[in-house]
């Protein structure tokens, strides 16, 4: 039997508590979103609340870090149930399904190309700006 003082046990206990805390924030955010700002989804509202609390120093990073890391690392598990819903749409089998996959492949190639070329150009511009600033500083 492992003791509570065991560092590994302590760590997992902390993770569980932090996941519970983030879940509470989410519940609070869904109440708030429902009552005041239905345009903003609860998750995003909760994220901004936590971000504000971190930035203002109300919430120490160490109090939520391991819980957040766990939630984000296992996120794939959380959306598997939603993907199984595809069994409710048998009409997606066959030609329509094939067309959907084609749309996704083509659009993905397009997004990859445009985004990376724009970011590369933006990066070169950033470097140029930095260089100009440095030259001004030297003068």
């Amino acid at each position: 039997m492992k003791r509570l003082s065991d560092p590994a046990v302590k760590q997992s206990l902390a993770t569980v508590l932090q996941v519970l805390m983030l879940s509470l924030v989410w519940l609070l955010a869904s109440r708030l979103s429902h009552a005041y700002v239905p345009e903003i989804p609860a998750g995003v509202l909760g994220m901004f609340l936590v971000l504000a609390a971190l930035a203002l120093g109300w919430l120490p990073l160490a109090w939520c870090k391991s819980g957040a890391r766990w939630l984000l690392a296992e996120m794939l598990l959380f959306f598997i149930p939603a993907t199984v819903a595809v069994v409710q749409y048998p009409q997606l089998m066959g030609s329509i399904g094939l067309r959907i996959v084609l749309v996704i492949l083509l659009s993905t190639v397009l997004v990859m190309t445009v985004t990376s070329l724009v970011v590369d150009a933006g990066y070169k511009f950033e470097i140029m700006l930095k260089r100009r600033k440095r030259q001004h500083g030297a003068l």
Binding site: A29, L49, A55, G67, L72
Partner: peptide
């Protein structure tokens, strides 16, 4: 399994930490 889906909510909140 809807409990697993439910955790997507807290996972969205958790994005605050890496952004910060």
């Amino acid at each position: 399994t809807h409990w697993l889906s439910w955790l997507l909510g807290p996972a969205t909140v958790a994005f605050a930490i890496p952004i910060y």
